[in-house]
């Protein structure tokens, strides 16, 4: 459908632009917020591809929790707020550009060479179906992932903990 095509092109273009802003800006807060926008546009793309539940999960989990976590991390590590010229490693820039462009080239070549199909537009994905599949066919990975989350939870708390005796008001 033509309309969907044009919308998707615009979305994807915007996606790329915002992503470029994530990695090039010298303001850490701008980088984090640009990531938010990247994720939002990703969620919109998912809606187009009739993956509603996944889009919602992105918005809720990714943007809601992960980005917040990032912002906290930025603040804790006393990253210099505002413009900061020292954010990029100038030595690596050219080589990194070459590397990333080569990777882009290789990937796109492979993808274009292999896949030439059309997307099947459906009316949307039934969440009930998703949940059913998740808990019947993929119950095992589901449980494993919950363990991973538990481990990450405990691990994170353990790592970030500190000895009460050493605590003083300068430390967090």
């Amino acid at each position: 459908m033509e309309a969907l095509d044009i919308i998707s092109y615009f979305l994807l273009l915007g996606l790329l632009l915002v992503a470029v802003k994530v990695v090039t800006t010298s303001n850490v807060i701008h980088a984090a917020i640009s990531l938010v926008f990247t994720l939002a546009i990703t969620a919109a793309t998912f809606l187009l591809l009739s993956a509603e539940f996944v889009a919602l999960v992105i918005v809720l989990v990714y943007i809601g929790a992960v980005i917040v976590l990032f912002l906290f991390g930025i603040m804790i590590t006393r990253a210099p707020l505002g413009q900061n010229a020292e954010l990029d490693n100038d030595k690596n820039k050219s080589l990194a550009l070459v590397v990333s462009l080569s990777i882009f080239g290789i990937f796109s070549y492979v993808m274009l060479d292999t896949f030439d199909s059309q997307i099947i537009i459906t009316s949307g994905t039934s969440t009930e179906l998703l949940g059913e599949i998740l808990l019947s066919r993929f119950v095992f990975p589901f449980e494993v992932v919950s363990f991973v989350l538990l481990a990450a939870l405990i691990g994170g708390i353990t790592l970030a903990r500190q000895d009460n005796a050493l605590m003083d008001e300068n430390q967090i």
């Binding site: 490693n89 690596n92 080589l95 990194a96 590397v99 080569s102 990777i103 290789i106 070549y109 492979v110």
Partner: peptide, 19 residues
């Protein structure tokens, strides 16, 4: 970062070889 750079360079080279 440099390690990642080397690794990726290797990946590119090998994939170019294969392609």
């Amino acid at each position: 970062q440099q390690y990642i750079m080397y690794f990726l360079s290797g990946v590119i080279v090998i994939s170019l070889l294969i392609l």
